[in-house]
Structure formats: structure tokens, C-alpha cells
């Protein structure tokens, strides 16, 4: 490969990284607005975007304290953490690719999210993967935080969140985060059981608990489908089939 082609490809990866950053940053506006609608201050919303920096967990945290207040804070923390588990799994892949130490490792860990991982693992060469990781991570971080501030200030100025449909916007945001994950029958079954658990126990338990309890749907379906995949494989005496739901 000549230096010129390498430069062109590098520029393409950088461009891709920043377009992902812009697209993701845009919905930081809805996060900021929903966070203040849920009762957080502008600076608390900003702290979540700067320090938690993982969209699904942030939306879940403000959704739960929004409905249950401070009493639901432990459940909000637990749910945010469970949604953050996948970043740790992404990190298993990106740590091999990046091979960083010291303060760069801390920065890499903080920037390990859906978008930086997706752009980085999509590249054909490790060098380009590293470029994709850092550019996407930094682009999303900068734009997500700027958009959160804008959204929080706008949300503060609006007043009653229900009048502007912000409560419904939160529902739609969770739908949009969930949608791309419903690609397998197991995922759809898990979602169905989770909804039944959450709505079923909601009238009789404290706010935040229904969502935490719904995690049992993932454990149940995960364990049963792993077992049945194993027994189907053993029964047919075949090689390990590729799982259709690899992350």
C-alpha cells in the first residue's frame, strides 16, 4: 500500500468518525432536556454526560429518578450499571486493538462506548481501527457534552415537560435504543417477558424495582437458550454453530 492510499483511507475513517459523532451528539439534546425534565439540575445532567458518558445508562438513570425521585436512586444506579456492562465487554475487544498503558488507558476506557467500538471494529486494518476508535470517541464526547448543555438549558426554559410531550419523547428514546437489538427470536422473547414482569409488578413495588426485576428475563432466556443450543449441538454431533446474536 502506498502512503497516498493510506492517507486517503485514514481521512475516510476520520470523516466517518466525525459523522457518527455529529449524529450521536444530536440526541444529546434530547438527553439534556429529559434530564432536567426528570428533576436534575443542568450541572447534574452535564456531570452524567461528562463522567458516566454512556447514553443508554444515562437515559435509564434519569428515567428512573424522574418517576421515583431520590427514593429510586439506588435502583437508578443499579440499572445504569447493568446497562453499562456491555461497555466492559466492548473493552475486551478494544483493549487488544489499542494496547495502551497509563493515562491513555484511562482515556480509552472512558471513551469505550457503542459508537467508538462499532467504528473501530468495522475497519479492515488495526491502524485504521485505532484511528476510528480515538476520533469517534473524542467526537462523540465533545458533541454529546455540548448538546447535553444545550438541551438542559432549553429544557429548563420550557417548563412543564408533559405539555411538550417530553415524557413521550423519553419513551421513544428507549424504543429507539431497543429497536436495533431485537434482531433475534431470543431478544424478542426477552423483551416480551421483561415488559410483562415490569408492568405486572409495577403497582405493588417501589419505583425503579420493575426495571431491575425485568433483568431476570435476560437471565432466564439466556440460560435456557444456551442450554438448548448445547443439547441441540450435542444431539446432532455437529461442530459449534456460529451464534446469530454475537454482540
Amino acid at each position: 500500500m502506498t502512503g497516498a492510499t493510506s492517507d486517503t483511507r485514514r481521512r475516510e475513517v476520520v470523516r466517518q468518525s466525525w459523522s457518527v459523532g455529529i449524529a450521536t451528539g444530536a440526541y444529546g439534546i434530547s438527553f439534556g432536556a429529559l434530564a432536567v425534565a426528570a428533576g436534575l439540575t443542568v450541572w447534574q445532567a452535564q456531570a452524567l454526560s461528562a463522567l458516566m458518558f454512556t447514553g443508554g445508562s444515562q437515559f435509564a438513570f434519569v428515567g428512573i429518578v424522574g418517576s421515583g425521585g431520590l427514593a429510586a436512586a439506588p435502583a437508578a444506579i443499579a440499572t445504569a450499571a447493568m446497562l453499562g456492562v456491555r461497555n466492559g465487554l466492548y473493552a475486551l475487544q478494544t483493549s487488544r486493538l489499542l494496547a495502551v498503558r497509563g493515562h491513555r488507558r484511562v482515556a480509552a476506557a472512558h471513551l469505550t462506548i457503542d459508537e467508538s467500538t462499532a467504528v473501530s471494529v468495522a475497519q479492515a486494518e488495526p491502524t485504521l481501527g485505532r484511528v476510528g476508535f480515538w476520533h469517534t470517541g473524542i467526537a462523540v464526547f465533545v458533541l454529546w457534552n455540548a448538546a447535553t448543555l444545550a438541551g438542559a438549558l432549553v429544557g429548563n426554559a420550557l417548563g412543564d415537560p408533559r405539555r411538550y410531550g417530553l415524557d413521550a419523547a423519553a419513551s421513544a428514546a428507549f424504543c429507539a435504543l431497543l429497536w436495533p437489538r431485537l434482531t433475534t427470536p431470543q431478544a424478542r422473547l426477552t423483551a416480551g417477558i421483561a415488559i410483562v414482569i415490569a408492568l405486572g409488578i409495577s403497582p405493588s413495588v417501589a419505583a425503579g424495582i420493575p426495571v431491575l426485576a425485568a433483568s431476570l428475563a435476560a437471565v432466564g432466556v439466556g440460560v435456557i437458550s444456551a442450554r438448548s443450543a448445547r443439547s441441540a449441538r450435542d444431539g446432532a454431533g455437529r461442530e459449534d454453530r456460529p451464534t446469530e446474536d454475537a454482540p
Binding site: F174, T190, A191, A198, V211, A218, G222, T243, P247
Partner: peptide, 17 residues
């Protein structure tokens, strides 16, 4: 399997609640 399905369960429950 469980870690792949965990976000699905939590997000679906969040939509419902």
C-alpha cells in the same frame, strides 16, 4: 448470552414503565 440480552430486557422494561 445473558450479557447480550441484558440491555434488551432493561430497555424493554424502561419502555413499558
Amino acid at each position: 448470552r445473558v450479557t447480550t440480552l441484558l440491555p434488551v430486557a432493561l430497555l424493554a422494561a424502561l419502555v413499558a414503565v
